[in-house]
Design a protein around this nucleic acid. Structure first.
Lengths: 202, 202
DNA sequence: CGCTCGTTGGACTGTTTAGTCCATGTAGGG
DNA sequence: CCCTACATGGACTAAACAGTCCAACGAGCG
């Protein structure tokens, strides 16, 4: 019911999730109907129900799709650990928000309020999504600490959580105010906070 | 169409917005129907449509209601400006999330993803809501700067935005992970970041 | 060449939903 | 005490919606 067995089926399933993801991004979960999705994807209803048990399953498919989306924006060097990699990662986010005009928000973060309360499975999926997203940052900070680039008593897990919060909060304020600089300010503060844990030079 | 002319009418309208607010908090906007609202409020449909033009207008009523909700949790001393007032404010939020079991998130923040993309008026209302919410903090920081408690070059507006982002991001992660400590960590970081702008003692 | 299994098309159904309408109730001013 | 304007109850409608069903298609394999 969920796994296509042929290449053609895989393409159809992918077209459905991509269409659903775009519609959810542009209008929100509440304003996205299955009829909208099949029209945009150019498929029939039976195709949708061949790969997704019901609407909730499709929305969980969107969570998975959007998770891959944000993960693909994480460079490999972030996990290796360097100030430069963190700065580059932050800048790529503000750049993206600028081109999007501060609309649409975070592909994963926006789904939390829309799905976490209604669907327990979706809530777990979103929690896992954040785990995967922050893993490279956490690994990078741990590596920096091991290399003596961070203070000995630096709490890597807490720094990671605080950074993720600044990202999500910055994106939320950007979406609410239609102003990408909200994210830029939040990320500058997050960067400064991380820098506070940098090991003293001399 | 929106303003009750009698005390009885005002009470009815208040009961409707309160019921809608609770339902939206517990299940999200998408899973809250007008029939649910009238049942919970104990009113009839014509009463709802006497005070709200349509569903979107009701949801804007929820934005206004929830805005007052978060504003009522802001003590007067925050605007006067003190480290103590900021710490107390932060602690009241984490305490609330602990009793709520990390469910439901921020009354205002959760509405952003659910309403901002679909309804332009709601987006503006939410932006204003954040303006009002952060005003006491911004005034307090400005007062502290004037009293020499903050560094001379401290950017009060940026500090305010960064703090709001940490709050919203912390609440979002708390909601996603059902873990109130996510907010606590984010707020500790926000407090440390603010403290960095404290004027040197000697 | 035909069989089979995954895939596709779209009509169909029952339910939920937002929104309308009108008859009735009620409180307070003249 | 009655009149008026606001408030209330609930039946009603039309549309949108999620989900079902079955007939037809097509690609690969024997």
């Amino acid at each position: 019911m969920s796994a296509p067995r042929t290449i053609r089926g895989q393409e159809t399933r992918a077209r459905i999730t991509a269409a659903a993801s775009e519609l959810v991004r542009d209008r929100g979960v509440a304003r996205t109907s299955l009829d909208d999705v099949i029209e945009r994807a150019g498929v029939s209803k039976s195709q949708l129900y061949l790969y997704f048990a019901d609407r909730d399953a499709l929305l969980r498919g969107v969570i998975a799709y959007n998770t891959e989306l944000v993960l693909s924006a994480v460079g490999d060097d972030l996990a290796r650990g360097s100030w430069q990699a963190i700065r580059t990662w932050f800048d790529s986010m503000t750049k993206f928000q600028h081109t999007a005009g501060g609309r649409s928000g975070c592909p994963v973060g926006t789904l939390v309020a829309q799905l976490a309360e209604g669907d327990a499975a979706a809530q777990r999926a979103l929690a896992e999504s954040f785990d995967r997203w922050q893993a490279p940052l956490e690994a990078g900070l741990a590596a920096m600490k091991a290399r003596g680039k961070l203070k000995r008593h630096a709490d890597v897990a807490a720094l990671t959580t605080a950074t993720m919060a600044s990202i999500q909060g910055g994106l939320l304020l950007t979406q609410a105010r239609r102003d990408p600089s909200q994210l830029a300010i939040a990320l500058d503060a997050a960067y400064a906070h991380l820098r506070q844990s940098a090991a003293g030079r001399r």
